[in-house]
Write a protein that binds this DNA or RNA. Structure first.
Lengths: 138, 138
DNA sequence: ATGCGTCTTCGCAATGATTGAGAACAAATA
DNA sequence: TATTTGTTCTCAATCATTGCGAAGACGCAT
């Protein structure tokens, strides 16, 4: 996604208002590679702006996703996650700690054996154990 | 998954009982390629066995999944889907009609750029428009 | 700087999917 | 057939997400 400053301009250009809540979320998402859920973002946001509502977090995330600034992903952890990295990439989920990592593949495989399906998007979810957890003597 | 008859044996061997409810679900899942949700299965089951509970459907699906007879998949449609095809394959979801199709790829791409992640599973979800919907003049 | 119109936020209720608990019930075995 | 043990059902609870309306705040024009 673009920087908070650029988003400020973009929001106003789109007839949307730039509120303190939105600015906070812009900042929390910028360069954020943790793939937060709405609720986890709400947790952090609440610490910095007591009184902000979960509803507002959901709303802003939805808007950002509609504008193409972030992408909403579903990696089988029960709730939606949001990713400010909108480049063409995939995800690796650690079964130990639940962390989600961005991954890139050389070439997404074409699908075979399904006649006439026009693919618009392909998303790979890898599962396994991340380096941190494998290192543990857990 | 195995046939209803084989599952009957397997369940008893595992100390589980073979009830009419379970037998019905075995039959409804066998050779079922619709990737049903718990609720859609419940709908069909209810027609054939009035009074069966959604709880029982969930429970049996969970057991079958734990036994490795079916697999639980998440393709971004809001609810879990179940697939009696447990071979190594992937899925294509039609954005028009919501249908989920099994697809196979020659070789799942290895992930690059994530040092030390031990992959145990990779699942690809393709999105697009299926042949039936593309043909429509909708 | 002020006012006004429109967009936002917030709080709460509602929805949909799934799971927990316990009483009543039924399959399997002796 | 009796007994044991697992199962089903009902109902409530939980979690994630969305709908709604009143109260509030941004931003443009003045």
């Amino acid at each position: 996604m673009r920087s908070p400053e650029e988003l400020t301009v973009a929001f106003r250009a789109a007839g949307l208002k730039v509120t303190p809540q939105r600015q906070l979320l812009f900042r929390l998402l910028h360069n954020n590679s943790t793939h937060p859920t709405a609720d986890s973002l709400f947790g952090v946001a609440s610490g910095l702006m007591p009184g902000i509502s979960l509803r507002t977090v959901y709303q802003t995330l939805t808007e950002l996703a509609q504008m193409g600034e972030i992408q909403s992903i579903e990696v089988g952890t029960g709730s939606q996650r949001f990713d400010p990295n909108v480049s063409d990439h995939h995800h690796a989920v650690c079964d130990e700690c639940g962390a989600v990592h961005d991954v890139y593949v050389k070439r997404t495989p074409e699908l075979a054996g399904l006649h006439g399906f026009a693919v618009t998007d392909a998303h790979i979810v890898y599962r396994g154990v991340c380096a941190d957890c494998a290192g543990d003597a857990r």
